[in-house]
């Protein structure tokens, strides 16, 4: 038996006590009129009121909940009226007036609730949906990133450090007995240390490229394009003081776009342009390749969109078959929701 049903039974049990007492009193005193019916009515009303309100308050969402409470109260009042009318012997059906008035009130309430949302409310609802999605995306991505960093460190730098410690220990052992072998091992140890540094550098670059920290977005992209196999020109400059999350998101977005240009577009040249005003930063990556790129395609681009979503930025791809491909990234720079 559920606790809910048990509670209802307990209530009924408690209610039965005054009813039974009244009935016994009536039976003992022997009065003609069956007055305990008014006691039944009082107890019954209280029970019904509690039950109905309890149900009504559980309704979700909130807009509907208050309508349900309203409905429960109106229904209860009409029920009380009709019961009083029946118990007092019928005749002219006066409860009709209250019933009409209450149903008018209820209908008005229902109409207000069911009215479609205003433009502002619709916008806010859409934004809440978007934020929920982007937050989930950002959290997922962060967790995945941390996992990747952990694995990279574990398989790379950490493994090399272990081997380094081992080699150093061994060369210490050999120092007296076989100095030549010790020297060879020390050389090996140095090479391992350099390799470990290489690994660390790669991991750190994946988290936050050093040029980005030193020079900001504009120069970080300029440094990036110097290493690409396709000539890329960079024009314009983003604002110098951008929030770190935003800067990183845009940097990796541009890096992904350019790596797609190199890998898939067959382009002979590409261009990155920074434009915008104090409120918004626009970055376009254009190439003269074969086109036909789609954000639905690569997982790389998907991750980038998640990252951009988290800073409220948009990515738009225009890539007709035959080219050119233009990727536009729009980043709001003000706190105000769009």
């Amino acid at each position: 038996m559920t606790t809910g049903r048990r509670r209802v039974l307990a209530r009924v049990g408690v209610a039965a006590v005054p009813c039974a007492a009244a009935t016994s009193a009536w039976a003992v005193t022997g009065v003609d009129e069956f007055w305990p019916r008014w006691v039944y009515f009082g107890v019954g009303t209280v029970l019904a009121a509690e039950l109905l309100l309890r149900r009504a308050l559980r309704v979700r969402p909130r807009r509907r909940r208050w309508l349900a409470v309203d409905g429960a109260l109106c229904g209860l009042l009409v029920l009380v009226d009709v019961t009083v009318w029946v118990l007092s012997g019928g005749g002219y059906f006066w409860p009709i007036w209250q019933a009409l008035a209450l149903s008018a009130v209820f209908s008005l309430h229902a109409w207000v609730v069911s009215r479609p949302l205003g433009a502002r409310e619709r916008e806010l609802a859409a934004r809440v949906t978007r934020l929920t999605r982007s937050r989930r995306g950002a959290v997922d991505r962060q967790a995945a990133d941390l996992k990747r960093v952990e694995r990279d460190l574990h398989d790379g730098a950490q493994a090399r450090m272990v081997s380094l410690a081992l080699t150093l220990g061994l060369s210490g052992e050999l120092l007296r007995r076989d100095p030549d072998a010790a020297a060879r091992l020390l050389d090996e140890a140095r090479a391992t240390a350099v390799a470990a540094l290489d690994d660390l550098r790669a991991v750190m670059h994946g988290i936050h490229p050093a040029v980005l920290a030193d020079r900001g977005l504009g120069d970080a992209v300029r440094a990036l394009v110097l290493d690409l196999a396709v000539p890329v020109t960079v024009t314009g400059d983003p604002p110098r003081a951008l929030p770190a999350a935003l800067e990183t998101a845009v940097y990796f977005a541009v890096a992904e776009c350019l790596s797609n240009v190199v890998k898939h577009s067959e382009a002979t040249a590409a261009e990155v342009v920074f434009t915008g005003d104090p409120d918004v930063l626009r970055v376009t990556v254009t190439d003269d390749g074969v086109g036909g790129a789609s954000p639905a395609g690569g997982t790389g681009l998907r991750g980038i969109i998640d990252r951009l979503d988290a800073v409220d930025a948009d990515l738009h791809v225009s890539s007709p078959s035959g080219g050119p491909t233009v990727v536009t990234i729009t980043v709001p720079l003000t706190e105000d929701p769009r």
């Binding site: 750190m204 670059h205 050093a210 040029v211 440094a223 110097l226």
Partner: peptide
């Protein structure tokens, strides 16, 4: 430096 960039070399 801990990392090298052609931009800086230039």
């Amino acid at each position: 430096s801990q990392y090298v960039e052609r931009l800086y070399a230039r």
